[in-house]
């Protein structure tokens, strides 16, 4: 197994002292270059967990280690945030500058990158998310998906090792959602950037290497998407809906169709039906 880039060790967190725990005894490891998803309903604590990893919140109990650095130590804060960047939910509320190019520069300015190095980094980051042609536009003229890709570029320019996406597609239309997810998958495959994808959309979790299901502040299931979604009944108590194809397969199986286990995508379903028809 590759070395873990993010290690969460028995972490609990409460917003107020003696208040209810938003995250309860969570342990989790994300290896370098992998694509993990955290699935959960609203209020399951998944966003809180994301902010714990980035050092925006500090754990009440347990430790969070990013690239070998403890988030509790003050001197690590900025290095952790540079190495494990974060993209948030609302695309409007995370862009700072009035021009796309300058927004991407914002992070670079903060970590003191020399001015001469900036243009090349900005251009590369914008190219990677397919937004270079919009570099001189004002953010409010872009669509939600485009804004979100600019936000990704802003993190990418800082050359992080991992990016945490805190429900970054929740406010987008289906096309924007697809574009963002595709851009992220490409970054993961081509540049080996570790991804922690937090979402409540099951169909997005299908593309991940590992899925962690959160419910009421705890991780209740771990596994590959195939393991998690093959049993439609088991995830129901967590108020999660399996991807449409997994549900369809389960229903067809109940009707007596001998479909194989672990069907998640339309392509797989088509293959399987074709096989049965022969």
């Amino acid at each position: 197994m590759a070395e873990p880039i993010i290690a969460v060790d028995h972490v609990s967190f409460a917003y107020e002292e003696d208040g209810p725990l938003a995250v309860r005894d969570v342990s989790l490891q994300v290896e370098k270059g992998s694509f993990h998803a955290i699935l959960g309903q609203n209020g399951s604590g998944k966003s809180t967990l994301a902010k714990l990893i980035n050092g925006l919140y500090l754990p009440t109990e347990g430790t969070v280690t990013v690239c070998g650095m403890d988030t509790k130590a003050d001197e690590n804060t900025w290095e952790i945030r540079r190495r494990a960047g974060m993209v948030f939910q609302n695309p409007d509320n995370q862009l700072v500058a009035t021009v796309v190019r300058e927004d991407v520069a914002f992070g670079l300015e903060n970590i003191g990158i020399p001015t001469e190095e900036m243009p090349a980094r900005i251009e590369k980051a914008l190219t990677d998310v397919g937004m270079l042609k919009h570099a001189d536009k004002a953010p409010h003229l872009l669509s939600g998906g485009q804004k979100q890709r600019v936000a990704i570029a802003g993190v990418l320019a800082m050359e992080p090792e991992a990016i945490i996406f805190d429900e970054s597609t929740a406010m987008l239309d289906p096309k924007g959602r697809r574009d963002v997810l595709k851009a992220v998958q490409r970054l993961n495959k081509e540049q080996g950037i570790t991804v922690l994808w937090i979402t409540h959309f099951m169909e997005e979790a299908v593309v991940c290497d590992q899925v962690h299901v959160m419910h009421r502040g705890q991780i209740v299931m771990n596994g590959t998407p195939r393991e998690i979604f093959s049993d439609v009944e088991r995830i129901k108590p967590y108020r999660l809906d399996a991807p449409p194809m997994a549900r369809l397969a389960a229903q067809l199986r109940a009707q007596g169709m001998p479909l194989k286990e672990g069907i998640l995508t339309v392509d797989e379903m088509a293959e399987e039906v074709k096989r049965l028809c022969k």
Partner: peptide, 9 residues
């Protein structure tokens, strides 16, 4: 929050 996450200090 977003600014802090992007190392603004």
């Amino acid at each position: 929050m977003a600014m802090e996450a992007r190392c603004y200090h």
